[in-house]
């Protein structure tokens, strides 16, 4: 994409990544202030994967996300105030504040939900793809999952069916090197991990997940393939989470040098440099964008914090659909 990258596209990609970074920073503050109850898993460092992927999609395409899912929701177009509201348990949130960070669903943007079960959403995306195929809508589904899911049986079952039936689904593995506090390489047999998809005759490859343009290109091809009815793809993006597994994790299992190496590949910095180099924006433009985004995000957080909590009468709503 680098060659034909135009200004509006590049700005959209850049802004979405910055928005996610700023959003997660606010979430961290909310958590530290005791506002966000429960567990929150931040996406900082992995922005290129979510943003590069969702940029290839139409609004009615599906995504199914996981526990580290705020970035996916933002990239797919959810409203950040309502996202904050959900994360701090307020009524205007996507689940009336009853779901929290790991249970955000947004039908408007085709978001089948962030998910608290490792691997839980993989068949959901596969099923949405099946439905799209049966209904002949041309929609595509993205299954986002972490490296930990590489060892969940349900991934293999889903890959097998997606391949058998040529379903329009793209499996997007975000390999940030760790499942909680365990290095993925310590618990995963077989190299490269792409073989797990390739074994089912699914096109499978590994990419730099710190470069939003690389992600965009790889996913574009896979999405196009899916839309043409040629079936699934299995993509692994190498990336890194800057924060702990969840807020509060001191990351004693990582070493400093590793962190520095990854931070030197920061996806936002990388995109910024490229945009300046290609004269798509000046340093000043970018700085202004950063500031604008920051103040928008901070303002949204402020609004969310003033939002009401759900009432007792919200407790039992939606247990069953009408």
């Amino acid at each position: 994409m680098t060659a034909k990258l135009n200004r509006p596209q590049s700005i959209k990609l850049y802004k979405d990544m910055v928005t996610i970074r700023a959003f997660e920073e606010e979430v961290r503050k909310m958590f530290s202030a005791g506002l966000a109850p429960g567990l929150v898993h931040l996406y900082s460092g992995q922005e290129a994967v979510g943003v590069g992927t969702c940029a290839t999609l139409d609004k009615d395409d599906y995504i199914a996300s996981h526990h580290r899912g705020h970035g996916h929701c933002i990239a797919k177009g959810s409203d950040i105030t309502r996202l904050f509201a959900e994360i701090i348990g307020r009524r205007p949130g996507y689940s009336l504040g009853r779901g929290g960070s790991m249970h955000i669903h947004d039908p408007e943007t085709g978001n089948l939900g962030t998910n608290g079960i490792v691997g839980g959403s993989v068949p959901l995306a596969t099923g949405a793809a099946l439905s799209a195929k049966l209904r002949g809508t041309g929609q595509v589904a993205i299954s986002f999952f972490g490296d930990g899911v590489l060892n969940q049986g349900i991934l293999f079952e889903s890959l097998n069916m997606a391949a058998l039936w040529s379903l329009p689904v793209v499996f997007v593995c975000e390999n940030n090197g760790y499942g909680e506090f365990t290095e993925i390489d310590d618990v995963t047999a077989g190299r490269p991990y792409t073989k797990r998809g390739a074994a089912f005759d699914i096109p499978a490859d590994k990419y730099d997940g710190m470069d939003v343009l690389v992600v965009y290109d790889a996913v574009s091809k896979a999405v196009e393939r899916a839309r043409k009815g040629k079936g699934p793809s299995f993509l692994i993006f190498d990336t890194y989470r800057y924060s702990g597994h969840s807020v509060g994790d001191k990351q004693e299992y990582k070493d400093e040098k590793e962190r520095q190496l990854w931070e030197a590949r920061d996806p936002i910095q990388k995109m910024a440099k490229l945009m300046v180099k290609m004269k798509l924006a000046t340093k000043n433009d970018l700085k202004k964008m950063d500031e604008e985004i920051n103040s928008t995000v901070v303002a949204a957080a402020k609004v969310a914090k003033k939002m009401p909590v759900p009432g007792a009468d919200d407790l039992a709503r939606h247990v069953y659909a009408p």
Binding site: G190, R191, K195, R196, A198, A199
Partner: peptide
């Protein structure tokens, strides 16, 4: 056998 092979078996 591609399946166990993918797991380095």
């Amino acid at each position: 056998s591609d399946i166990p092979k993918s797991l380095n078996i």
